[in-house]
Amino acid sequence: MKRAEQILGIVLLLFAIYIGYESTQIDTGGTIGSVGAGFIPFWMSVSLGIISVAMLVQSITLPSDRFAPTFFSEKTARMQVLWVLAGYLVAVAVMKPLGMLISLAIVMATTMPAFGARSWKVIAFTAIATPVIVYIVFGHWLKVDLPMGILENVLSIY
């Protein structure tokens, strides 16, 4: 955990430096006012930089018994987080080509086992039922134009 805190400090510091550099490149656009578009981003990244250095110092100097012993509670838990993250990532990635409904089915099918659903029948049923409900409530009643992907010509939303 001590190591993790140090990494957090470094990541924040690098982020601050990068954004700070980017904000010096912002076009302020004309001669309007004395404070341009880059003012707030620049000074905020400077502040963030200072804070992250302070955090880094704190995480190095404080004795390790002041931190929790480990970052992840156990290996299976970590794998489960990664599994959910991966499933969701796939779902987001296919949302445009395959459509919102299919990608939501993927979310359900990957996430439910991670939370301890065991019966594949329940999982399959929910994974199919959820997008249908979403389609009716959001697409049909609330008139949100959901991306339909390959279902575009099969199901018309209007």
Binding site: L12, I19, S23, I26, D27, I32, G33, A37, S45, I51
Partner: peptide, 29 residues
């Protein structure tokens, strides 16, 4: 410290987009 870092991060998160003064995009990468 962490709360302050969060505040700075939050303000930074709100900066990308069209600048309300110059109408120019900033930090949009």
């Amino acid at each position: 410290l962490k709360a302050l870092a969060g505040t700075c991060l939050g303000i930074l998160v709100a900066t990308p987009g069209m600048d309300a003064f110059s109408g120019l995009p900033r930090l949009t990468f």
